[in-house]
Design a protein around this nucleic acid. Structure first.
Lengths: 135, 135
DNA sequence: CGGTTATGTCCATGTACAGTAAACAGAGAA
DNA sequence: TTCTCTGTTTACTGTACATGGACATAACCG
């Protein structure tokens, strides 16, 4: 009897997942005129699974690569879809791990800032990059 | 035959994982004078599993909460351990998802910057926060 | 020496997550 | 009616993240 033996408090890197995700996908898919089978085929998943996902009958949302594909097909922002699904965009983990101390520190400092403030930071980062390494 | 039926290209939000992780944990644990069983108990996992982890005999490293606990017990930076394990620190997904467009954009702009440059950005973020919302 | 105690390891097993296959029910067209 | 399209349900699969119990080895104690 080592741990608390968690029964269903599982979480990889995935927060709550709004029930919005499945509903949103279905809305956009039908708006685009895709049938469930056709869309599933294009995304590379089974119709069964897509049906489950759209009804929010799944414990966890699809993996990053499938969400990416959905975004492309629907003409939606992949990052928005990732957020709805409660997942982190595929490329971010590597960026964070490249600077294991500084990147998390930056994110925590940026927590709660407005989109406008974040945009300013982003611009400054881009500028730093253009100016090259000052060391 | 819908998908490519991936065989071992699985990845939740976890990149390669250096074989360093297990070795590092063992080195630090023994340096601290913990036995495998004692440390496993304190972390809240089985001795069996800890043994596997330290030998890098596991496919994926422990989950975020256990890595966090290890860091505390060993007096190591949790963020460093997360990076070694190929995981993202627990609190970051929520921060990212709170601004699904702006946070990923900031991270991508900050990609490749030096620790010094990142520190400057972090300081500016903290300053913005203290000055309150300018909207 | 012989028995206990502590070390780490191996093998079998369990449960959740991400997904599939096959069969099904309803609507519409021919 | 039958054919075909729609979406849905039930049961199953493989991998990830673990656990339990038995095991071998070495050290300690009388």
């Amino acid at each position: 009897m080592y741990s608390k033996q968690r029964t269903s408090e599982r979480q990889t890197v995935m927060t709550a997942q709004k029930p919005k995700f499945g509903i949103f996908i279905r809305e956009r898919r039908t708006a685009k005129g895709y049938s469930l089978r056709r869309f599933a085929e294009l995304v590379g998943i089974s119709p069964t699974y897509l049906s489950h996902v759209e009804q929010d009958k799944v414990d966890s949302p699809p993996t990053a690569d499938r969400i990416q594909k959905m975004a492309e097909l629907l003409g939606e922002s992949a990052d928005e879809l990732f957020a709805m699904a409660g997942r982190v965009p595929e490329d971010l983990p590597k960026i964070i791990q490249s600077q294991p101390e500084a990147m998390p520190a930056l994110l925590r400092a940026a927590k709660g800032l407005t989109p406008e403030q974040l945009k300013k930071l982003q611009d400054q980062a881009s500028k730093m990059r253009r100016e090259g390494d000052p060391s």
